[in-house]
């Protein structure tokens, strides 16, 4: 029983399905994180209070552990699949040309855009979550002034550019990943597949533009 479960769980089809499901969950995280970020436009108090409420909620550890495991599964499996795929053709072609009707730039660069996002993720955590500590007091409650950490960070144009570059990579990644997840799970219908592919592109643009707007806003805010 257990061994047969393992046999199916480690099959190529299920591995891809796990990639798809974790990917879609991460897409959900992207949306919620983006909405949270948008609170920055409402000023330091709103944003800091939101961040404070988030980190002081006891459920945060559970949520963080869940999120971390989704990330780790997605990344670990991606590495495994990429290595396996590489091994499936040990002797490479002398010339290889795409048909022009199948692979897209996004689909053929998934491992690379994924790697960029991974590097970004680590730096992002170091810069913000574990970044410089400032405090602010609202209504007698002292809390972390994460707003200042963020605005300070984006005073460097290089940080802004790096951030936007990574968000473009992220957009490219999800523009294939989003619909690909549905294909892997087995959701295919003449009516909806086209729609999903379009939706993936719209989602990618929203994510890239949505996330890129904030660093520009912070940069323009300057020292104020």
């Amino acid at each position: 029983m257990a061994s047969s479960m393992l046999k199916y769980a480690t099959s190529s089809v299920v591995k891809k399905q796990v990639m798809g499901v974790t990917g879609l969950l991460l897409c959900g995280f992207l949306i919620s994180h983006l909405i949270g970020n948008c609170l920055m436009y409402l000023g330091p108090e709103v944003f800091n209070k939101y961040a404070h409420a988030l980190v002081t909620n006891p459920l945060i550890y559970l949520a963080e552990a869940g999120l971390a495991s989704i990330f780790l599964i997605h990344i670990g499996l991606a590495a495994k699949l990429t290595i396996e795929n590489n091994n499936a053709r040990p002797d490479k072609y002398f010339v290889k040309q795409k048909t022009g009707h199948g692979a897209t730039f996004a689909s053929s660069t998934m491992p690379y855009t994924g790697l960029i996002i991974l590097v970004f993720l680590i730096l992002h955590l170091l810069d913000f979550k574990f970044g410089p500590l400032h405090t602010a007091t609202y209504g007698g409650v002292e809390m972390r002034d994460i707003y200042k950490t963020v605005v300070d960070y984006f005073q460097s144009p290089l940080s802004v550019l790096w951030y936007i570059f990574c968000m473009i990579a992220l957009g490219i990644h999800v523009s294939h990943g989003f619909w690909s997840a549905f294909q892997s799970i087995g959701f295919w219908h003449t009516k909806y597949t086209c729609l999903l592919q379009c939706l993936a592109k719209v989602f990618a643009v929203v994510i890239t533009l949505g996330y890129s707007a904030l660093p520009i806003y912070c940069y323009l805010q300057g020292g104020n």
């Binding site: 199916y8 190529s12 795929n85 091994n87 499936a88 009707h101 897209t104 689909s107 892997s184």
Partner: peptide, 24 residues
């Protein structure tokens, strides 16, 4: 089940939904 497991065992790669197969 049997065809997929056999396919995996024979060392084919994992599909990444690029559709180059359909195009070729």
């Amino acid at each position: 089940k049997n065809m997929v497991l056999k396919m995996d065992e024979l060392g084919f790669g994992n599909c990444t939904n690029e559709a180059e197969c359909e195009a070729s």
